[in-house]
Simulated assay, not measured.
Amino acid sequence: MDKLIPATVQDGSARAQITDKKADVLLENALSALASGTRRGIVQSFPIKGADGKPSSVAHLLPVRGSAHDLFSRMNSILVVMPLPGPGAPPVKVLQALFDLTPSEARIASALADGRTIDAIGMDFGIARETVRSHLRSIFAKSGVSKQSSLVRLLLGVTLPRPGS
């Protein structure tokens, strides 16, 4: 986290704050949902824009539960920020882990990043166009974007570290 302070994460009066205002609102909402018990035990993930306006990181809010409360008795969650090193869409399993997507949602997100249309995805996967659109709405909610083009840009900005780097 030291490398992310103060450009990405800052120390606020009551909690850590993210310099990307949209991401900070998502963090605030996620913390409120955890505190109220409406999202108890659910990991929440969202993108953080960098200085150039492109996603630079993905934040994961991990709830503290079970025996972890023995170590973290005064916390209800832990914030983990994963930097995104460069262009290129990651494998489906990585998309699932980064954005808490279901396997179907991750396959659809990956297909969109590959440049396929909603109609083509429906035909390829043998599902109705409206089913693809329903999955897409869920993907938007989980990834923190609201447009298909923004989702594709986000996904193409996610890469895996190369061996030895």
Score class of each variant (00 low, 15 high):
residue 61 L to W: 00
residue 100 D to M: 06
residue 108 I to K: 00
residue 89 A to I: 09
residue 120 A to C: 03
residue 127 I to T: 08
residue 97 A to I: 02
residue 140 F to N: 01
residue 126 G to Y: 08
residue 148 Q to H: 11
residue 145 V to N: 01
residue 42 I to Q: 10
residue 56 S to H: 02
residue 54 K to Y: 03
residue 67 S to V: 11
residue 101 L to D: 00
residue 50 G to K: 14
residue 36 S to D: 14
residue 91 P to N: 13
residue 32 S to N: 15
residue 33 A to M: 09
residue 30 A to T: 11
residue 133 R to N: 09
residue 77 S to R: 03
residue 147 K to L: 14
residue 39 R to K: 13
residue 20 D to E: 09
residue 121 I to Q: 02
residue 45 S to I: 00
residue 55 P to T: 04
residue 117 T to D: 04
residue 126 G to L: 08
residue 140 F to P: 00
residue 117 T to M: 02
residue 119 D to L: 01
residue 134 S to R: 11
residue 125 F to A: 14
residue 107 R to V: 07
residue 8 T to Y: 08
residue 135 H to L: 02
residue 85 P to E: 12
residue 22 K to V: 15
residue 121 I to Y: 01
residue 108 I to G: 00
residue 130 E to N: 11
residue 9 V to L: 15
residue 97 A to Q: 06
residue 138 S to H: 07
residue 61 L to A: 03
residue 154 L to E: 06
residue 46 F to S: 01
residue 51 A to N: 08
residue 98 L to C: 04
residue 139 I to V: 15
residue 88 G to C: 06
residue 27 L to C: 00
residue 47 P to T: 10
residue 111 A to F: 03
residue 38 T to V: 10
residue 152 V to I: 07
residue 55 P to A: 14
residue 50 G to S: 07
residue 5 I to L: 14
residue 95 L to I: 05
residue 141 A to P: 07
residue 87 P to V: 10
residue 57 S to Q: 11
residue 149 S to V: 15
residue 73 S to P: 09
residue 38 T to P: 01
residue 124 D to G: 05
residue 143 S to K: 04
residue 8 T to E: 13
residue 53 G to E: 10
residue 12 G to C: 09
residue 83 P to F: 03
residue 18 I to K: 06
residue 31 L to K: 10
residue 82 M to S: 14
residue 53 G to C: 05
residue 160 L to F: 12
residue 79 L to H: 12
residue 28 E to Y: 10
residue 101 L to V: 07
residue 47 P to K: 04
residue 37 G to T: 02
residue 21 K to Y: 15
residue 148 Q to M: 13
residue 80 V to Y: 09
residue 108 I to V: 11
residue 87 P to F: 12
residue 46 F to D: 04
residue 6 P to Y: 13
residue 70 D to C: 12
residue 80 V to M: 11
residue 107 R to N: 01
residue 113 A to R: 00
residue 137 R to K: 14
residue 101 L to P: 06
residue 21 K to I: 15
residue 148 Q to S: 10
residue 36 S to W: 04
residue 97 A to P: 09
residue 71 L to P: 07
residue 57 S to H: 12
residue 146 S to M: 14
residue 87 P to I: 02
residue 36 S to K: 06
residue 110 S to A: 08
residue 65 R to N: 08
residue 58 V to A: 07
residue 62 L to E: 13
residue 93 K to F: 09
residue 36 S to H: 02
residue 159 T to V: 03
residue 130 E to W: 02
residue 129 R to H: 11
residue 13 S to C: 07
residue 6 P to I: 03
residue 10 Q to K: 15
residue 76 N to Q: 12
residue 90 P to V: 15
residue 48 I to F: 07
residue 142 K to W: 07
residue 78 I to M: 05
residue 112 L to T: 00
residue 74 R to N: 13
residue 84 L to H: 01
residue 118 I to W: 02
residue 60 H to F: 14
